[in-house]
Design a protein around this nucleic acid. Structure first.
Lengths: 263, 263
DNA sequence: GAGTGGTCTAGACCACGCG
DNA sequence: GCGTGGTCTAGACCACTCA
């Protein structure tokens, strides 16, 4: 029963690696519990949108107090991996959830507090399997030449083409992705990834630059190639910091802006 | 002793406004404690960088358990208003702290993992008092024509002018700001604001666009006016969401990029 | 009314920093 | 060795949801 306590005399559970100790690496119980819950999430024991066991149940399963499970879940909730709802339970987070749709999209219309404003219309230009260029392979932790899926699409708001996006996905995980799939699914693309491919994007990094479009890009967006655009290069990760998507967006910022909250 | 408990029969402390009740507005004890600590922070009872009373002391002061104070401080720490250090105590956050310097600056060199890389050299172009244009007044919650301080400066990295920045500050709070002050202070400008004006920036919002510089801007940065730049418009707030700075930066993104973490 | 998350308490013990 | 924040527990009660 004490395999988790690293204060236990014989079977400490901390990271007592057999390697030369460089860090004490004390890990509190609730962190270990968090790790176990995380494993279950990765393994798909509970799927996106589903209810996970109650705090009491988990406490019983792991032989710790409710408070300890609570603190573990607190952190998972802070990282948007689960969502708590008082009176109902704790749910596995999903991009399909109404409250957090388009969580990663930071482009907002300048005026419109009418953020509903009619969701983006998507126009898929291309969707094909190809060999990963060096840069894409690096971002996705693949080898150059490995199979990747590539999607190119345009997002329009109120009929105005606003975002030109290139998306690269690991070929293995996204085998068989089609234009129809990208077009027809209602709601966030990331929700479709969860549903159809069991891949849940958990966090992302973005690198932002100001650029001028080349002739093709300008033409696709219907703007002169002297209009400066935001280049947003996003790497999205699943559990365990595994990169699962590289996305390069060109954003028009004459009617929209990228909004960021600094804390 | 029970003025804080809104479960107390007679003197509930919740937001029982005399206005028509639209929200139950139940507010847990730890939130109320957080509010009280916040008041002390605003009032300057403890100054940036200073140690605040221990959890036990605060628990005694507010007549609650340590755990409740703890949860209040947890939230303050999560919002970067205080910093905990095990074994030492809890400190009022400051932009002068080594660990969080330039917390709001998201522009990073492309290659240099050498993030030390020699801090920015500042070149102050201008610093004068003037009457607030409409747009500035709106952002700072002033009236058009109210006095504001305006600073224009260039930040260079490795000798290359990279950021052209215009800063507007409320004239009242920043009376007497000089070029020398802006130039001479070593370390973050926000740390100087804390030290010399008792104004601590707590959070900020940024609106980002891609733009082309006008002739003057291009000349100041030493680039052709066909080079697209990042326009970063920041509103920074002190306690209580009071806006205290409007800043408009033009960032070169040929050698640097704006980095953002999406959670 | 039963079940879930949320709050609050009191007490014990641990890890850390410093004199 | 003391004081600080950090962890863990056990138990009571509150707020919310739903049948």
């Amino acid at each position: 029963m004490s395999t988790l306590h690293n204060t236990a005399p014989d079977t400490p559970a901390g990271n007592h690696g057999s390697t030369g100790v460089s860090t004490p690496a004390f890990s509190p119980l609730y962190q270990q519990i968090k790790g176990l819950i995380l494993q279950s999430l990765e393994a798909g024991e509970w799927r996106p949108g589903e209810l996970i066991p109650s705090e009491m149940e988990l406490a019983a399963r792991f032989k710790v107090s409710q408070g300890t499970v609570r603190k573990a879940i607190d952190e998972l909730a802070a990282e948007n991996l689960v969502m708590r709802r008082q009176g109902k339970g704790t749910f596995v987070a999903t991009h399909a959830a109404q409250q957090v749709q388009y969580r990663f999209l930071k482009l907002h219309p300048d005026a419109g507090d009418l953020q509903g404003e009619g969701r983006a219309e998507r126009h898929i230009l291309d969707c094909r399997r190809l060999r990963a260029p060096a840069e894409v392979a690096r971002a996705l932790a693949l080898r150059t030449g490995d199979a990747v899926m590539h999607v190119r699409r345009i997002l329009s708001f109120a009929g105005i083409p606003t975002i030109l996006e290139d998306i690269w996905l690991p070929g293995n995980a996204f085998k068989g992705l089609t234009v129809e799939q990208m077009s027809n699914y209602q709601g966030p693309t990331y929700a479709m990834f969860e549903l159809d491919y069991g891949v849940r994007m958990v966090r992302a990094d973005e690198k932002i630059r100001a650029v001028l479009p080349d002739a093709e890009q300008a033409q696709l967006l219907g703007i002169p190639s002297t209009t400066p655009l935001l280049s947003v290069e996003r790497t999205a990760f699943t559990y365990n910091d595994v990169p699962m998507e590289l996305r390069r967006g060109l954003y028009r910022t004459d009617t929209h802006h990228y909004r960021n909250a600094l804390n």
